[in-house]
Design a binder for these strands. Structure first.
Length: 825
RNA sequence: GCCCGAAUGGCGGAAUUGGUAGACGCGCUCGACUCAAAAUCGAGUUCUGCAAAGAGUGUGGGUUCGAGUCCCACUUCGGGCACCA
């Protein structure tokens, strides 16, 4: 800038209008396939096109963009893709309302969001853009389904499933939230016996759990904890109980050591097992009990303080340890789909069994000695075994762990039991009675049965003519009502057959999109194996904690299956995960009902894109919530103006050697680079902003009351400011960079190198403590010896006084050059 | 009940990982500029106290020359799971 040029004021509108088209034309963020530099893959969880972008998107994508832009400045070949998770129910509801096809609503919203993303300055490579609702995408979702099917990992079964009466569709366990309600509409979920498609995620339970070791430290601990909890591995034993009528029923127990206390036997009332065991005399009673249960809501059933109910099945089981006859009951406190759906009742050591025994007046035997002061009912703690012996084995006196091992050995020797592992995780119910999803590529033939659609007939496309009322849920998939679509020739025998009319859970779509990003236009395969192996796993994944179990667990599962198929050479998709916090307003999540929503577009109009982004990043650590009521985008705008004017004020020529510049400012500049680097590596993005603010303040001071605007150190500070600021405020930074005489884009400039020699301070402030309390300070050379520092500290008059008052020096701790602690007395 | 996480000024949050608590910002107070306001700039701002000084990082103990940081016990808040045998 020449001295004569008229000073403009900082106007974010002009700056945005200038640079947004430039980045598009320049292809600033498009990955060059020939780029040989080391790679980084930074990925945000792709959005659902529910409308325009909101404040939550702004927070998440601002944070993800810092990571991407930082990696780019550090010289990596960065892939930062963008796409949409564009299947899902809201599009269907809109279509019914507007008598339209869901695609209309979906793609209109995508265009709106795409424009907003561009305005928001996200450094995405738009050539990666994908939508899961495009036939070119879901063709491969279907292809992957078929691969899973081939390996027996996709199957159908009849089972009581979660049913939302309002959405008229089944739900996965992961989608039943809180006290048993639908995560979309809050309606209490009921159970319905249906034939549904599942992915066999339980086959991968151990690996999903054990491979979390790879993620420790790189994923938030709470996400790992939630997944661990969800998988719910528990070690125990299977024990076989002979039951009258010639059956043998196996139970799962984590406490085989308590088997001598098993006095009754309970099976899940809603499972087939109960119907198989029941005597003819008791069959009517069982049926009546089952009828009663149907009227009990899931919420009521799950409440722990509900009194135990059940019905005697008329048969007895034999306890393999005691030989005792145990009455067999059906009850709803035993879950059909956990363990084996049957439990040995040990009232002495299990509170639920205690309550059942009390309700049915069954004997209670303690087999673990509670401490003398114990006053509870069932005793579930540690203690020596009692009452636990037969003619062949005695556990008496053994502590729980030892007793478990001994009884398992004995059961194994008798062929009556074995150690086993059980999981809370159930198979993933993936079929949905919805329209706007990827159709399950299977044909049902009266002669051949289940026939997978041949690969060359993919994609099984959704009908494009369906609209409005065609899509209303009727208890079965809307596709079932479209006869032209449903009727098809069997690919195996040519007979008239029908298509499967369910569509896939949208979490199937999102379980592999991060793979497709590296090769989004591939028409021969979901992705090129070599390209994926070269680019993945994702180095930094960014998204909300609400997907802690759902999307993240499913994606991990998919990756492991693909690994086993030889399609990828890694077992975990996301090396590092960052959960951004929510954006609140007044301590509460923004919502229509509270009327506390803040409109992103309005904020950008009023304060500018950069100010909104800066506010998001500066407000708190990335993982913490941002309360919009506590922050000031106006202040962010003000700061950006200060930074921008810095560049405007610089009068030295580009390329001026900074060595001759003011030493004080240079030291601050280089300290800022060094600090920013380690802060960015630690993802302490909010603190990085604080450091840039300090640098801007120091540079301003230098201009106003120091060496002046022509000092080379001021130019250096302004350049560094532009570069670091470009991570959060790309428009302002780009404009600064140009004012400073550089070619755009600052985003592809090199991260500034700091000079070690400038970080070394000549003098430091040493603190002098007496008995750990700060009493005085001392300016000393940075290379002062411990002896000199101690002597100087002890000579201080203030310190002398304390020493006299406290009765002399006992000990002196010296940490040159920063600290002296005098211990007196 | 079980499992995670957190607690620092009026507010959001810093603290090189055991060595000056409160960086940076918001807000507030005072001042400059202005006829005035806005914008901008400057000074101050943990608490008590006129000051000297003292106290201080949820509570209570402990380790240490020295603790926001480490250990033990607890409290409160947030989140997840929960009749899972």
């Amino acid at each position: 800038m020449s001295e004569t040029a008229e000073k403009q004021s900082y106007d974010f509108r002009t700056i945005e209008a200038k640079w947004l088209p430039f980045w598009v034309q320049d292809g600033t963020f498009v990955v060059d396939p020939a780029d040989e530099r080391p790679q980084k893959y930074v990925c945000d969880m792709f959005p659902y096109p529910s409308g325009d972008l909101h404040m939550g998107h702004a927070e998440a994508f601002a944070i993800g963009d810092v990571a991407a832009r930082y990696a780019r400045l550090r010289g990596y070949n960065v892939l930062h893709p963008i796409g949409w998770d564009s299947f899902g129910l809201p599009a269907e509801n809109a279509a019914i309302k507007n008598n339209a096809h869901p695609a209309e609503w979906t793609y209109t919203n995508i265009e709106t969001q795409a424009a907003s993303f561009k305005r928001y300055g996200i450094s995405a490579d738009w050539s990666t853009r994908l939508h899961t609702s495009d036939p070119e995408y879901y063709r491969w979702t279907q292809w992957l389904f078929l691969k899973f099917y081939e390996q027996g990992l996709a199957y159908r079964k009849d089972s009581p499933v979660n049913w939302c009466p309002s959405c008229q569709t089944v739900l996965a366990n992961e989608q039943v939230v809180g006290e048993g309600v639908c995560d979309r509409c809050g309606t209490p979920v009921t159970k319905k016996a249906l034939n549904q498609w599942y992915f066999k995620i339980t086959d991968y339970a151990d690996r999903l759990l054990d491979d979390m070791d790879q993620l420790k430290g790189a994923w938030p601990e709470r996400v790992l904890a939630m997944q661990r909890n969800w998988i719910g591995r528990s070690e125990g034993a299977h024990v076989d109980f002979p039951v009258e009528g010639g059956h043998t029923v196996t139970v799962f127990t984590t406490r085989p050591d308590t088997i001598f206390g098993a006095t009754f036997f309970v099976v899940a009332a809603d499972a087939d097992l109960a119907a198989q065991l029941v005597t003819e005399e008791q069959r009517a009673a069982l049926e009546e009990y089952r009828e009663q249960l149907k009227s009990v809501s899931e919420i009521e059933r799950q409440s722990a303080d509900r009194k135990k109910t059940g019905v005697f099945l008329g048969v007895h089981a034999t306890n393999p340890a005691t030989g005792a006859k145990m009455p067999v009951y059906a009850t709803d406190y035993v879950l059909a789909d956990y363990g084996t759906g049957a439990v040995m009742g040990v009232p002495g050591q299990d509170q639920r069994d205690w309550e059942f025994a009390k309700a049915f007046d069954l004997p209670i035997v303690r087999t673990v000695q509670p401490p003398a002061e114990f006053e509870g009912e069932a005793f579930t703690g540690e203690g020596p075994a009692i009452n636990s012996a037969n003619s062949e084995i005695s556990l008496d006196g053994l502590e729980v762990e030892e007793a478990k091992a001994r009884i398992i050995d004995w059961l194994e020797s008798k062929g009556a039991g074995r150690a086993t592992t059980n999981y809370r995780l159930r198979d993933w119910l993936l079929s949905r009675q919805r329209f706007w999803g990827a159709p399950i590529p299977v044909i049902h033939c009266p002669d051949c049965g289940e026939v997978p659609v041949p690969e060359d007939q993919l994609p099984v496309q959704l009908p494009t003519e369906a609209k409005g009322e065609d899509l209303r849920p009727k208890g079965k998939s809307p596709l079932a009502g479209l006869n032209d679509w449903v009727t098809v020739d069997c690919p195996a025998c040519g007979a008239t057959a029908t298509r499967d009319t369910d569509t896939m859970d949208t979490f199937v779509d999102s379980s592999w999109y991060y793979l497709r990003y590296v090769d989004p236009k591939n028409t021969q395969a979901p992705f090129d194996v070599e390209k994926v192996n070269a680019r993945l796993p994702v180095d930094q994944y960014v998204g909300g904690v609400e997907h802690a179990i759902l999307h993240l667990l499913y994606s991990r599962f998919f990756t492991k299956v693909l690994y086993d198929m030889g399609l990828v050479n890694f077992t975990e998709p996301f090396k590092a995960l960052m959960n951004q916090g929510q954006v609140l307003n007044g301590g509460k999540a923004m919502s229509k009902s509270l009327g506390n929503g803040v409109d992103l577009a309005e904020q950008m109009d009023e304060y500018g894109v950069d100010a909104v982004r800066l506010t998001m990043v500066f407000a708190s650590p990335p993982a913490d919530d941002v309360d919009w009521a506590d922050v000031s985008p106006a202040a962010s705008q003000k700061f950006l103006g200060r930074a921008w004017r810095l560049a405007q004020d610089v009068t030295s020529a580009p390329g001026t050697d900074p060595a001759a510049g003011a030493a004080g400012l240079r030291a601050i500049t280089h300290r800022t680079i060094a600090d920013a680097q380690s802060l960015l590596d630690d993802q302490k993005y909010n603190v990085v902003i604080a450091r840039i603010m300090e640098l801007v303040n120091a540079a301003r001071k230098e201009i106003d009351s120091g060496a002046g605007a022509g000092d080379p150190a001021v130019r250096e500070a302004a350049e560094v400011t532009a570069q670091i600021l470009s991570l959060v405020a790309p428009y302002t930074a780009e404009d600064m960079w140009q004012m400073l005489g550089h070619d755009p884009s600052v985003a592809n400039s090199a991260w500034p190198a700091y000079e070690e020699s400038l970080l070394v301070e000549d003098t430091v402030t040493a603190v002098v403590q007496v008995k750990g309390k700060l009493r005085d300070k001392l300016e000393v050379p940075a290379d002062i010896s411990a002896e000199d520092l101690e002597a100087q500290a002890l000579a201080l008059p203030k310190i002398q006084r304390y020493i006299e008052e406290d009765g002399g020096v006992r000990k002196v701790i010296v940490r040159a050059p920063k600290l002296v602690n005098v211990v007196t007395g």
